Simulated assay, not measured.
Amino acid sequence: MNNGQTMLIAFDGSEEAARALEYAAKLLRPEVVEILTAWEPAALQAARAVSRTGMHQSTVGAESNAIEDDPAYAEAKELCRQGVAVAEGLGLAGRAHLVEVSTNIAAAIVESAHELDVDVIVTGTRGLTGLRAWWNSSTAEHIVRNSGVPVFVVPPEEEEEYTD
């Protein structure tokens, strides 16, 4: 993959995302890495949380309409910077991208991959199983099913079983 090709990594600051970036650097050896952090405005996060409680959403409002004043934007910007630093620490040329989520994170990642015209999408996964997996939608699964681009999925690190 070292022919000027690019990969997009969905970077949320988690151990899984850093691990995915590390494996992709070793195995895919891309020339350029698009570090993508998807974020949702704090007011929308609060409105979604309030709607789950049954309270009227009109009680939740944004105090400021400026993106720069949104704490979720500031956090996403810092996470994206961390992703670029991780990429550069692995010897890769990382470029930062923030995308505001309008529907869901997976859809934002897929849309960004098409806009950036990447050759592969890299994502980590939490590796949920059983009942937890049934109740949680898989971002990685959505990306694989809907991207139309090769997807490199890195599972979480297995915990070692200890015997006495």
Rank of each mutant, 00 (worst) to 15 (best):
Y23W: 12
R48A: 15
A43T: 15
E31M: 07
E34S: 11
L28A: 04
K26F: 13
V33G: 05
Y23P: 06
W39C: 00
P30N: 05
K26H: 13
V50H: 04
V33D: 04
Y23M: 14
Y23C: 09
A25K: 02
R48D: 14
T53L: 14
A46T: 12
A49Y: 12
V33W: 04
K26A: 15
E31Y: 08
A25V: 03
L27Y: 15
V32W: 09
R29E: 11
S51L: 14
A38V: 06
E34V: 12
A43W: 09
I35H: 00
A47K: 15
T53E: 07
S51D: 15
R52E: 14
I35R: 01
Y23S: 10
A47W: 06
A49T: 14
V32A: 09
E40G: 02
V33E: 05
L36C: 08
Q57I: 10
K26G: 11
V33L: 07
R52G: 12
V50W: 07
R52C: 09
L36W: 08
M55A: 14
Q57A: 09
L36R: 07
A24W: 00
A42V: 06
E34R: 14
L28W: 02
R48E: 15
V32L: 12
A49C: 08
A25Q: 01
A24S: 05
L44I: 13
E31N: 11
E34Q: 12
L27P: 09
W39E: 02
L28K: 00
E40I: 06
G54P: 06
P41D: 05
R52P: 06
